[in-house]
């Protein structure tokens, strides 16, 4: 019990005495994970939309595959990206191993399946409702997909948040491809892992509370936005 109280005290001290190092770590966490969500959306959303409105051979298999990939272990993704970006690997000449860019790539790979699979589900449900009406109005597939995305935008926002949560919370991938370099690739989760291995459990847990607080804040904002929109747009 005492260590739990110590953790909350540590969390409070961290927030109250917001020092530059912590700000930098939190900032990098947000920057990396938000970038990953954005890029993953650029790939995952069109993919999800295409699967939702198109009928093609192997579609069902693709859906099963995407659903399975949602459970991809971060360490495996990290290792894969590490081997790709390592100097001895095929993309080694880029020289981006142990940079935030490498972390963005790993997290992007991790959440593309989440965004694709969940948006596919949302858009397909909407498609069932809209299908005849949109075709009657003369919408082609691409038009229809864009309309569905726009009309389900608040549900899709929740999906993006799920992706962000997964990205911000994972440690395995960023640890491997980022290297947890102080001041360069150290993010919240790798800091937590580091403090844990130093045996400073209250500080680690305190950082964890700050992380959860951040994710909570983002989700609350999104929930409010959604609530507001629901009332406004029906």
């Amino acid at each position: 019990m005492t260590s739990l109280w110590e953790a909350f005290a540590a969390a409070w001290a961290l927030i109250a005495g917001f020092d530059a190092t912590l700000a930098q770590i939190v900032g990098l966490s947000l920057q990396v994970s938000l970038s990953a969500v954005l890029i993953a959306t650029c790939f995952g959303l069109p993919l999800g939309a295409a699967i939702a409105v198109e009928r093609f051979a192997g579609r069902q298999a693709l859906i099963v595959l995407l659903n399975a990939l949602m459970g991809l272990p971060p360490v495996v993704v990290g290792l894969l990206v590490y081997l790709l970006l390592s100097r001895a690997g095929p993309l080694g000449s880029l020289g981006i191993l142990f940079t935030p860019t490498a972390m963005v790539i790993a997290q992007t790979l991790l959440i593309v399946p989440i965004i694709a699979a969940l948006s596919r589900q949302t858009l397909e449900d909407a498609w069932r409702e809209y299908d005849e009406q949109l075709r009657s109005l003369g919408a082609r597939r691409l038009n229809a997909a864009m309309t569905l995305i726009w009309d389900t935008r608040f549900s899709l926002l929740t999906i993006l948040l799920a992706g962000f949560g997964r990205a911000a919370a994972e440690v395995g991938a960023v640890m491997i491809v980022g290297g947890n370099i102080d001041g360069v690739t150290r993010v919240m989760t790798t800091t937590i892992a580091l403090e844990t291995s130093k045996g400073d459990l209250p500080l680690a847990l305190g950082l964890g509370i700050v992380l959860i607080g951040l994710v909570l804040l983002l989700n609350t904002a999104a929930a409010l936005l959604r609530e507001l929109a629901q009332r406004r747009y029906g």
């Binding site: 809209y130 009406q133 949109l134 109005l137 003369g138 726009w150 009309d151 935008r153």
Partner: peptide, 27 residues
């Protein structure tokens, strides 16, 4: 292009009434 249909349960797009009408015309 020369016909239109109204359904028993109309599907309203999540946008303004005007934009709903404009949507079909734009298509």
């Amino acid at each position: 292009r020369h016909q239109a249909m109204v359904f028993q349960r109309p599907v309203m797009l999540r946008r303004s009434a005007l934009a709903n009408v404009v949507y079909g015309l734009a298509l």
